[in-house]
């Protein structure tokens, strides 16, 4: 069986480290790659101490992009910048996108620019990009976060909003809750 990789950008990992159920992330993936450019941006004490613990355990690994990854990331930044309806991306999230495409990893991001690039650019089609919403949804579906009722499912998402000062778009949240509830009832 192939190993399941994710690659995290800065905003995701900073916020995720505040979530009371944060440990499910490292159970969901074999390894979460943290690019050098991302690690250097994390200064927050709570975030850096959680990341350093995961690096020590081997659940996370520092990733050094190759020169060709960096060239490709720069090209992608310019491609996105040339489109006024898209949100700009910077080196850390661009690196996540091009490396994920190359190795088949899941990108973990809360960066709107990265989310839009993956959604709108044909060259990134097929790259899986997950927000915290998708990570929590998958964790619930796989039983990494326990929930027995619709209320408990909803609570897992709302706890993230409370812990991180994040807001999930209501429609996306409702769809995620519905998908988890359906999955749990099929399993019974």
């Amino acid at each position: 069986m192939s190993r399941r990789f994710a690659i995290s950008d800065t905003c995701f990992v900073i916020d995720w480290s505040y979530y009371r159920r944060r440990e499910c992330l490292v159970e969901l993936f074999d390894v979460v790659l943290v690019p050098e450019q991302v690690l250097s941006e994390v200064e927050d004490e709570r975030s850096i101490s959680w990341i350093s613990l995961q690096l020590a355990r081997g659940s996370m690994q520092l990733f050094t992009p190759s020169p060709s990854d960096l060239r490709e990331a720069e090209r992608l930044i310019l491609e996105v910048a040339s489109r006024p309806y898209m949100r700009r991306i910077d080196v850390p999230e661009a690196v996540c996108l091009v490396v994920a495409r190359r190795i088949g990893a899941v990108v973990l991001t809360e960066n709107r620019g990265a989310l839009l690039a993956a959604r709108l650019l044909r060259e990134l089609r097929g790259v899986a990009v997950w927000r915290a919403l998708e990570v929590i949804r998958e964790s619930l579906m796989r039983g990494l976060i326990e929930a027995r009722s619709r209320e408990e499912v909803r609570r897992a998402f709302l706890e993230y909003e409370v812990d991180t000062s994040h807001v999930f778009p209501r429609r996306d949240l409702e769809e995620a809750v519905e998908a988890v509830v359906r999955c749990l009832s099929e399993r019974r």
């Binding site: 809360e110 960066n111 709107r112 909003e161 000062s165 994040h166 807001v167 999930f168 778009p169």
Partner: peptide, 8 residues
Amino acid sequence: RARIPVVT
């Protein structure tokens, strides 16, 4: 602190 949420 400014109660501005991240929305994605």
